Simulated scan of single mutants.
Amino acid sequence: MARRWLSALITSPLLLGLAACQSEPPQTAGQSAAAEAQIATLPDDPDPALWVLKDDDTTIYLFGTVHILKPGLLWFDEAIKDAFDESDELVVEMIEPDPAAMMKIVGDLAIDKSGVSLRDKLNTEDRAAYEAAMTSLDLPVNAFDPLDPWFASVSMSLVPLVKNGYDPNSGVEDALTGSAKSRNMKIIGLETPEQQLGFFDNLPEDVQIRFLNFNVNSIGDMAAGMENMVAHWANANIAALAELMNAGLEEKILYDTLLSNRNANWAEWVDQRMDQPGTVFMAVGAGHLAGDASLQAQLAKRGFRTKRIKY
């Protein structure tokens, strides 16, 4: 299961909750984000948003994904399936490594090297809240002591999702890569696992601890928040997704690390790929295709016009 958690941990929309971990108290940031986002209902027929970029001999479809879902959600049909079937290449954020490589990456980047226990990095009040949250999840309070705060935080945040029926093996990328492999399609990763882990491992420790404290205070709302996010994704509510997934990125280090720089890099990749003929299905986290700093906005700066496919 650890291998499958890599995509969920690193590219999960939950990680954009890091954006709320600014200088204000974590619970205030969480309440602010929740207040702004409307509540959605999961439709009987999910139709997530899809865009296309074309020139005379190149077509690139842009599809926003959710990296961890409940089994049985039927989204891979209609225009999405048609676009995928037309494509020669699948592009995803990251190609998952084999289990041995995964464990080495985690050991190198996610395990604390300072010799200071995770709980010993927390002040008295935050430590008490953290230990209470771990107990509420039926986890030993010392389970994540050897880990960096960011990795402990995202690991903790996935537990209530799994308990509520979400499956790291049921994400959008799993379905797409499985279908691509069955067709012997070329599969390209925009980033390496080391890069994606490094985005968070390189954050200052105080930012990582704010992230941890935010998730501790939000642990009881994780499952409901994920339900709402998936419903907005399934309804193609792009503006609501932008609020939920990209709100609060005013802190420059978070904005640049998680969103702006990555979208700019991906726009450069698309720009270069448009010089080659073929049809590409590009699937990245839905938060990257929503908001003012979206991949589409970055492409527009380069003179490209993406079109929303209505279906």
Rank of each mutant, 00 (worst) to 15 (best):
G189Q: 07
A290P: 01
Q195F: 13
L90V: 07
N164L: 11
V162N: 09
Q31I: 10
L147Q: 14
L249A: 12
K310E: 15
A132C: 08
S179G: 08
V162I: 15
I187R: 05
P146K: 12
E227M: 07
L176G: 04
L53C: 10
Y311M: 09
I187P: 00
L258R: 03
E191W: 11
K301H: 14
K104N: 05
G278S: 05
Y166M: 10
D145T: 07
I209N: 03
D201C: 11
G303Q: 07
E24L: 11
N169W: 10
I105F: 05
D256L: 05
L289Q: 05
T59C: 12
G64L: 08
P13M: 04
M1C: 08
W150D: 01
A247F: 03
I105P: 01
W233V: 09
A34I: 06
I39C: 04
R262N: 07
M226Y: 10
S260C: 07
G64T: 10
T135S: 13
I60N: 12
L254D: 01
V92D: 06
E96S: 15
D271G: 06
V216A: 04
L42F: 10
S12W: 00
A286V: 14
M229K: 01
Y130R: 02
E243C: 05
A40Y: 00
D112R: 08
